[in-house]
């Protein structure tokens, strides 16, 4: 299983042709306390770099973008019921959706962990 990162601070952890997607620890810390999450329905098609989900803190709403094009195969109801889980474990139990990738080639444009860490350090 390999994890990739976007410049919009999403991560995608790929197993076969299905990727689990969430927001990074860096993003969760920047957002502050998450109070509301809106996820796409299972079966919905999402497009790389287009809005996919919404995450709201006390102060503001932010869009979460799809790191790849594909179909949503699962949505994490646990973070809808308990949005604080996004802050507690953003890169684990606080995952957002699973996406069946339409084009595995889209992964090559994403960052690996080292590149993403360097990117965050430059922010």
């Amino acid at each position: 299983m390999t994890t990739y990162y976007t410049s919009e601070h999403e991560w995608i952890s790929v197993d076969g042709d299905v990727g689990t997607v969430g927001i990074t620890k860096f993003a969760a810390e920047k957002l502050g306390d998450v109070v509301f999450v809106e996820l796409p329905d299972v079966g919905k098609s999402v497009k790389k770099e287009a809005d996919m989900a919404v995450v709201e803190s006390v102060k503001a709403a932010s869009d979460v973008y799809a790191p790849v094009t594909g179909e949503v195969t699962a949505a994490n109801a646990a973070i809808v019921d308990e949005p604080a889980k996004v802050n507690e474990d953003p890169e684990g139990g606080g995952w957002f959706v699973k996406i069946k990738l339409a084009d595995m080639g889209q992964l090559t444009g994403l960052m690996d962990k080292a590149a993403y860490e360097a990117f965050c350090a430059s922010q």
Binding site: S57, V58, K59
Partner: peptide, 12 residues
């Protein structure tokens, strides 16, 4: 200051 280390929810 918008918030300190504890964050808005805890400060509130």
């Amino acid at each position: 200051p918008i918030q300190y280390a504890d964050g808005i929810m805890t400060e509130h």
